[in-house]
Write a protein that binds this DNA or RNA. Structure first.
Lengths: 119, 119
DNA sequence: TGTACAGTTGAACAACTATTCAACTGTACT
DNA sequence: AGTACAGTTGAATAGTTGTTCAACTGTACA
């Protein structure tokens, strides 16, 4: 019979050994935040559409804005977020900046997500 | 030489044929929203930790609250969101409700995400 | 040098979201 | 019936986030 240390949870621990065992296998604070931050990037319709477009071809900001019927500004803001998450790369050609996907994992993550949705 | 229909985008279309071709391959409005909504569920540290815990074993609300050092209430709110996304199932055993993962795609989605992060 | 235009950026606003709090439900046990 | 406790729920609050607007940068071209 062991008294638990003070828990923020306002209840008795029902399965103490299980909790301790799982606790040892939990990802660290930084990894959890990194995972959540990555999915947060995927969790916006505009960014999903940008990524879906870039699956087919590199495109400039103007192309994407036209395709999605949105302003260049909002597209540029979203591309910055995708850039920070290292999901897109860009190359400059004169006045035009072309964006393309920079990660081979995105396609399979999206495919798995589509599988879940259509089950 | 074709005049474009009015675009919300405040620019000339630079690559019109490309945009038209990609437009035909874009996912529909409902699919885009479904994809974004699913990733939005994954885009929160608390839910990432709940899912990470359930990878190892089914657990009751009290166990999860204790493991994450949070209140039963906040865990219950998050489990409702996971339930609505059809990512967890639950079974009642007396007073206790056990939750477990209800999707075989989650593991591979998370694995791909971890691969991206640690590249 | 001056104009045109693709793209970027910061601030502001509106919409959304996670946690807290309090009240509540449902089951077990006496 | 009454108590105890696991879990749920709705409202409120604080923090976050996407779009807009206006001003700006950088490159091409005359």
């Amino acid at each position: 019979m062991h008294k638990e240390k003070i828990e923020r949870c306002d209840c008795n621990i029902l399965h103490h050994e299980l909790v301790d065992r799982v606790r040892g296998r939990m990802p660290g604070k930084d990894e959890v935040r990194a995972i959540a931050d990555l999915f947060k990037v995927f969790g916006d319709p505009t960014r999903v559409r940008i990524i879906s477009a870039l699956f087919h071809s590199e495109m400039c900001v103007c192309d994407i804005a036209s395709l999605l019927d949105m302003t260049k500004s909002s597209i540029s803001h979203q591309l910055r977020i995708l850039k920070q998450a290292r999901l897109v790369r860009y190359r400059r050609d004169g006045k035009v900046v072309f964006y393309s996907l920079d990660d081979e994992h995105i396609k399979s993550i999206f495919d798995q997500a589509k599988s879940h949705i259509s089950e």
